[in-house]
Design a protein around this nucleic acid. Structure first.
Lengths: 127, 127
DNA sequence: CGGGATCCGGATGGATACTG
DNA sequence: CAGTATCCATCCGGATCCCG
């Protein structure tokens, strides 16, 4: 892999996007970073997300080893969490947020950029 | 925007993904970072990408102000380039590549990680 | 060469109702 | 609460042909 052609033929960027390039995947991963754990919680702020789609989405993320599913003893209480691989997406998510804060007009005049940045650094444990 | 709820309701991560969450968008942006400029070049390594889809894709990226379209004098020769906003995606792309190189098994044993990293740092001018 | 027009089938998304 | 089952609309993407 010494030149751009070799690189393009087996591209790590494309590989990463294969994991994420679905409508809801990043949003769910982001929710997990911010403490959400349950099926119902993921739906709270997503009126267009139906049960079927969310269900498929969670299965797909599990197959891709980005999240874990844990069924608690009491039966009908399921928790989702990020795997180590999923947690490694923190920098990607951080850079996505920073891109918007720096380059999208309706966010640029947002005085709270510093707050958001801090929130992210804490939550995602960036350094 | 002082807490996570405010943040979630107007999320910069989601905003950034609105720009990228299409099957071919990141791949085309990546191509541009690596020097490709022409309609035909984008198709070279993407046998499944039809004219219609690529055409729509380029229009969409143009509307989102991530790329510029330049029609050269000679008439039928069109060039595409990244806008300043598009160029600002370099860190996102870099982190996507690093994620794969660190966490995807079939890339982990790749001895060329250092090379790729260097290639990216040069190409994307990261710092 | 860049890219529009058309056609088409399969995948995807969403609403709703139901279940353990 | 965490899903499954159905149904239906739409959209997406791919193939092919065409044009300036």
């Amino acid at each position: 892999m010494n030149n751009k052609n070799d690189f393009a033929s087996k591209c790590p960027v494309d590989r990463a996007m294969d994991l994420l390039n679905k409508k809801w995947h990043i949003q769910i991963i982001k929710d997990l970073f911010f403490g959400k754990k349950h099926f119902k919680e993921f739906k709270e702020d997503k009126p267009n997300l139906s049960n079927k789609v969310l269900s498929n989405c969670l299965k797909d993320l599990e197959n891709k080893e980005l999240i874990n599913k844990t069924i608690l003893e009491n039966g009908n209480y399921t928790e989702y969490s990020l795997t180590e691989k999923g947690l490694a997406l923190n920098k990607v998510i951080y850079e996505l947020a920073m891109f918007t804060l720096e380059k999208c007009d309706d966010f640029k005049d947002d005085k709270h950029k510093a707050n958001v940045e801090k929130l992210f650094k804490n939550t995602l444990d960036i350094n």
